[in-house]
Design a protein around this nucleic acid. Sequence first.
DNA 1: TTGACATATTCCTATATAGGAATATAATGT
DNA 2: ACATTATATTCCTATATAGGAATATGTCAA
Lengths: 113, 113
Amino acid sequence: MSDMARTPTTHDPFNAVAEPKRRQVLEALREQEMSVNELVELLGWNQPSVSKHLGVLKQVGLVEERRVGRQRLYRVNAESLKPIFEWVSPFEKIWSERFDRLDVVLEKMKKEK
Amino acid sequence: MSDMARTPTTHDPFNAVAEPKRRQVLEALREQEMSVNELVELLGWNQPSVSKHLGVLKQVGLVEERRVGRQRLYRVNAESLKPIFEWVSPFEKIWSERFDRLDVVLEKMKKEK
DNA sequence: TTGACATATTCCTATATAGGAATATAATGT
DNA sequence: ACATTATATTCCTATATAGGAATATGTCAA
């Protein structure tokens, strides 16, 4: 007993977003609030699949739901992606700094020519 | 046949980094190049565990390996996190813009007081 | 060559998926 | 009440883990 597998997808934004399809859903909802069926049509998947992915996203707080009649309108909750942005940013500094240094070198070469 | 489970951890940076321990490894290596045993000591895990996580990270290109004597020195390859940074950035725009708008509102309230 | 050190690999198992199919729930209009 | 529309849930299964334990590989030094 007490065995362990992969971290559950509903554990945090990192795991929820690891699934490519869930990223697609978020990209779609970034532009505008959308009903499940609109997503189904836009993405071309079957409806249960869309609902299930939305379920995971909702559990993690990546999307929010608003009920209008029989529809459920989903919208992205961008702020819940903050942990990812903040985790990756320090690494971004590294490659952008490296790029800056390269820039400086190129500039120097230009002058010396 | 043709069943599917979760996207393999070695499929892309998103999946590799979904595992919290792998993020810890990357954080450690962000500061400086390190041998496996140094990581073992720093993180307090057993050696095979560290090696296995490094293996995944290496497959995805998130770390690079340099052999020196019987040691293997690992360093982070920050640029391979670019896809994550670029994917999440448009969402960051959303919440930072929202924050800006809030800022404007607060400024206005101050003036009107 | 032998031992000690550094790291990787293999074997095992419980677990959490993702996808497909079928079905359940919920809300609306008539 | 009933049919219809919109969405969620359940059941099933092959798959890829992550962790622990044990072992293999590789490299140096005497």
